[in-house]
């Protein structure tokens, strides 16, 4: 059973997070240990497994990037696995762009220019949001190659943003 089925919601890149969280609370209560007082070992184990799935499911479905990656995985491409990710060839222009931005960020760090770093992060967030939207649209249309290419970029953007966060922490500490 996949996480969408587990939560009884349609398989889609768009979902109502509030409703998901509500459903999570309801379903979690059904398998709560307090309800299993006096139950046998088997019933307890089943409940514990279901709790673990519910926790992992809500973690994946709540986050738009994880959700999109999970949908792609259900369609046969697991970008979070080493092998599948290694096979994904990103366009050279994209890698050049990322390399250029990482080098520029390195220069900004040397100059301790937090404002510039924030401006660069804002550009990256815009690019990330645009590609996430592209990926969602591609997933809805079942266009796996396009979704793969769009989602393949997201880790690079996330890494860049982590670098900016680390730089900010370093400056403020």
């Amino acid at each position: 059973m996949d996480y969408f089925e587990l939560y009884g919601i349609p398989r889609s890149a768009e979902l109502d997070v509030k409703a998901l969280e509500q459903r999570f609370r309801e379903l979690s209560l059904e398998v709560h240990p307090d309800r299993l007082v006096g139950a046998d070992a088997h019933a307890r184990r089943v409940a514990a497994e279901k709790t673990a799935s519910l926790n992992e499911g809500v973690r994946v479905l709540k986050d738009p990037v994880r959700r999109a990656l999970y949908l792609l995985k259900l369609k046969g491409v697991d970008l979070e696995s080493e092998q599948a990710a290694a096979k994904l060839q990103m366009p050279l222009e994209f890698l050049e762009e990322i390399m250029g931005r990482r080098e520029a960020l390195e220069g900004v760090k040397v100059k301790r220019d937090l404002d510039r770093a924030h401006a660069m992060a804002a550009e990256i967030r815009t690019a990330r949001d645009a590609h996430l939207a592209q990926a969602k649209a591609a997933l809805e249309k079942d266009d796996v190659p396009a979704a793969t290419q769009a989602l393949g970029r997201l880790r690079y953007y996330a890494r860049f943003l982590e670098e900016v966060d680390a730089f900010e922490e370093e400056l403020l500490s």
Partner: peptide, 9 residues
């Protein structure tokens, strides 16, 4: 080259 799984270049 890049690694999509971790975002390294």
């Amino acid at each position: 080259v890049g690694a999509p799984a971790c975002g390294d270049v």
